[in-house]
Simulated scan of single mutants.
Amino acid sequence: MTCIIDQIKACIIAWLLLLSLGCTAVYQAERVVIADGVFWQLQPADALDKINQQTVLITANYQNNAQQLLVTTEFRENVMHQVAISLQGLPLYELSLDNSGMVTYQQYIPSSIKPKYILSDMQLVHLPLNHLNAMLTGAIVTETTTETGRQRMVFQGQKIIMTIDYQASGITMVHHQRNYQLTIKEVE
């Protein structure tokens, strides 16, 4: 009986070890399909270096399902590092992007989140308008001042693909074609 219990303990420890190691991928930054016929070339880390260090609470809404995560982004030695955890404290992923465009992504729990979409959404929110329009294919980005802040819209012809609203309370990004919304609020 002791032998069986020891084997079960060993299996549990091995399973936990595998779970803690997660899945790691390393690849060159690539062209991302933002919407049908709309492409964004991921930019190297130095394009986002104005962030320096930031911790945000992201609420993602998709198919009537809301998920929240805490994301910390910082720049060290010309590399952008990002770590995400659940509100319960479980590590979700680590992501890094260097100035050569090399992406390293470690996922700790199974998820459909793809790092290229994390990076493209982040870049669409934070990069200057002229930079976005220079690197976006199949669409244009406009920016207007509103009563409560400013708003970016990604257009494919006359069709609105994305809306990004910047207000004092945070940033709301709506992807109209993929039907998801991100609300980003800084944590102090």
Rank of each mutant, 00 (worst) to 15 (best):
Q41H: 04
A10S: 12
M153R: 15
V32R: 08
M102W: 01
S96F: 08
V26G: 07
T137C: 11
I51C: 10
I109F: 02
E188L: 05
V33F: 05
Q158W: 00
N61R: 03
G157Q: 02
V141L: 05
L42V: 00
V174E: 12
M122N: 05
R31K: 14
Y108W: 00
N133V: 05
M1S: 15
I164H: 08
R178F: 13
M173P: 01
L57P: 05
L19H: 10
I85V: 15
I34H: 08
N64H: 13
L97N: 10
Y117V: 03
Q123K: 02
M80G: 05
N64L: 04
I160V: 03
W15M: 13
H175L: 09
T172G: 06
G101I: 01
F75C: 08
V56T: 11
A45K: 07
L17R: 13
I8T: 09
L42S: 04
T24Q: 12
L16A: 05
G149P: 09
S20W: 03
L97V: 05
Q53Y: 08
A10Y: 08
G170R: 06
A84M: 09
V141P: 05
T137L: 11
E188Q: 06
N64A: 14
S20R: 14
L70S: 06
G89T: 02
V174I: 14
L182G: 01
Y166S: 14
I13T: 10
I4M: 12
Q54G: 10
M153S: 13
E74R: 14
D98R: 07
T104F: 04
V154L: 15
M162A: 02
